[in-house]
Every structure is written in C-alpha cells, then in structure tokens.
C-alpha cells in the first residue's frame, strides 16, 4: 500500500508543472476573450469593463495566483460558450470520450495482441510480414480520414451502420438514467437491452477508426517482447522440462511479455484520448474532444485550461494505474522503489 502512496506523491511535481504550463499556454492563445464575450456590438469601454470583471486586466502573476486559489476550490471557471461551470461541462462529457476510447482500445487489443503473439511464434515467416504490413497500413492513414471512409462505406453505401449522429439516435431511443455517464454501462444497469445495443452500434465505427491507429504499437511491442521471452533461458528450461507448448507460450512467455505490453497500453490509451478530438468531430460525438475544439475556436480560456488540466491529470492517474498493474504482473517491480 505504501507503494501506492509513494507513486501518488511522485505525481505532485508533474501536476504542478502541468498547472503552470496550462495557465501560460492558454494566455498565449491568439484572440481576446473579453472582446469575444462582449459580443459584436460592444465598444472599447464595455470591453474594458468585461476585461476587469474577468480579472484579465491584472498582471499575469496575480491572475495565476487567482487561478490556483480557484483550482483548490474546485472552480475551473465558467465556460464562455456554454455559460456553465467548466467542471460541470467536463464531468458531463468525459464519460462519452472514455467510453469511446475504451472501446477503441479494446478493439485494438483484441486484434493486435493475438497478432503479435502469432507473428512472434513464426518470426520472418509470411504471416509475420503480413501482420507487420497490415498494422503499418492501418496506422498510416489519418484518423479522421479513416472515420469518414468508414461512414461512407458502411453507412452511406452499405447501410449496415447506424446514422453517425453521436452516441445515440435520440429520436428513436432515450438515453439511460445517468449513473456512470457511459451509455453502454448505464443501459445495462437499467436493464434496457435495446438502448444498450443501439449505443453499442453507434460505438462500432468511431471505435474502429480510433483503434486502427493503436494496432501498430501494440502489435509491435507484443511481437518484440514475445520474441524476447520465447528466446529466453527460462523458456528453454520449460522446454527441457517437457512442458506442453500451450503452457510454455502462456504461463512462461506471454506473462513475461505482459509488462512491456501493459506499459505501452497505458501510453496508447492516453494517446487515443487525445485523438478523440478528431473522431468526435466526424461522428458528432458529444465528448470532451469536441468540447475542446469549440473552446479553442472561441478563445474560451477557462474551458481550454480545464480540458488540458483534466487530460494531464488523467494521464498521471493512468500511469499510476499502469504502474500498479506492473506490480501485479512482475514481483520484482515492487522491490525496485
């Protein structure tokens, strides 16, 4: 348990860095939020008034201190575009993005890990080259392009996919009562199978477009670490002991290969969370990515700051989770720190 606390404590410096950088970055954004907020009919006096009201006329250090005080109180400011507290906006929209990212990652894992294992058991064979070529091509196309292509083929031409109108076609279905904010989970909790299937159907195309990109890193690290484990001395010992092939492959090789794989999975997950920005635009997904794009276009400081801060915190927490997973996989990790 002390291990968890130590790792948590270790995240403090990075969080401080994140707070400083988000504050400075959002002030470097072009555009004047006071002018935007005042509207097109405003004159110089009313803009100055609004600037004073928002605290934007004070010096940067003072603004920063104010920002810290607000953060401590859980106040991320109000969004200029939605008029709601940024924290409320983010909490409302985050589950949509998490859900999408999770399904994308699940798709990638289910394809890429068996592929990597398969390739590692036959290095330099035709199968190996085929796997490598497939994942490279999948990673080579821009995410939004793949998204548009899939919509065109599966919705427009073939008509097998539902209309890309976001998380649920709300003309036909009512969103489930909010528990986690993830439609698939919430509809299962309320036992509404139809809504569950409908929201799952909406997830398929965006999750695939997002997940295709993740195939390459996962398949490669799986192949590389499996090759290493299969060539190791302890695999030789297992073979010398006459253990069956399946046992050698799973208990001896794959479990040892899992540690690097889990590290990469953590990185890929946070990367996918960031890539949501593009996919959510294509599929009309009401997640934090779409929110961030709108905020940047509107010079909405508070919303942008809140978004970046939340992503950074998520990233730190995710890394913590990966570390904890690592200690479960490999007993040596517990003793290193």
């Amino acid at each position: 348990m002390s291990f968890v606390w130590r790792r948590l404590l270790g995240t403090v410096p990075s969080l401080i860095g994140v707070v400083v950088v988000t504050f400075l970055l959002s002030h470097a954004l072009p555009g004047d939020p006071a002018a935007y907020f005042a509207g097109p009919a405003a004159n110089a006096t009313s803009i100055a008034q609004i600037r004073a009201k928002l605290g934007l006329d004070r010096s940067l250090p003072v603004q920063f201190l104010q920002y810290i005080v607000d953060l401590v109180h859980g106040n991320l400011g109000n969004s200029l575009t939605t008029g709601q507290p940024v924290l409320t906006d983010l909490i409302q929209r985050l589950p949509a993005s998490i859900e999408l990212t999770f399904f994308a990652l699940a798709f990638a894992v289910v394809i890429a890990i068996p592929m990597g294992v398969w390739a590692a058991t036959r290095p330099d064979s035709l199968a190996d080259h085929f796997c490598r070529a497939t994942v490279s091509v999948a990673a080579a196309f821009p995410t939004f392009f793949v998204g548009l292509l899939l919509v065109y083929v599966f919705y427009f031409l073939l008509g097998v996919a539902p209309e890309p109108v976001g998380r649920l076609n709300e003309i036909l279905y009512t969103p489930p009562a909010r528990v986690t904010g993830m439609y698939t989970v919430d509809s299962l909790i309320s036992g509404d199978w139809q809504t569950f299937l409908a929201s799952l159907a909406q997830l398929v195309l965006p999750a695939i477009s997002l997940g295709l990109f993740a195939l390459a890193p996962i398949a490669r690290i799986t192949r590389a670490s499996m090759l290493q484990a299969l060539g190791s001395d302890f695999t030789r010992t297992a073979r010398a002991g006459g253990l069956p092939r399946s046992k050698i492959l799973v208990t001896y090789a794959f479990r040892n290969a899992l540690l690097p794989v889990s590290n990469v999975l953590g990185m890929v997950f946070s990367f996918l969370l960031g890539s949501n920005v593009l996919i959510e635009q294509v599929y009309g997904w009401q997640g934090i990515g779409a929110y961030a794009v709108t905020a940047v276009l509107a010079s909405d400081y508070a919303a942008v700051q809140g978004f970046v801060l939340m992503m950074a915190v998520l990233y730190v927490l995710l890394n913590l989770l990966v570390d904890l997973l690592g200690t479960m996989i490999d007993p040596r990790v517990r003793f290193e720190s």
Binding site: D233, F234, R236, T237, A240, T251, R255, I329, D330, P331
Partner: peptide, 15 residues
C-alpha cells in the same frame, strides 16, 4: 533432464 549455466536467468523470473 537438463540443468544449465546461469541458473538465475534459467528460472522464470515472475513465477
């Protein structure tokens, strides 16, 4: 049966 040199790496490190 067979035993090897460098016994430390010849055993599965996480079992």
């Amino acid at each position: 049966a067979m035993i090897f040199q460098s016994p430390r790496t010849a055993l599965n490190p996480i079992r």
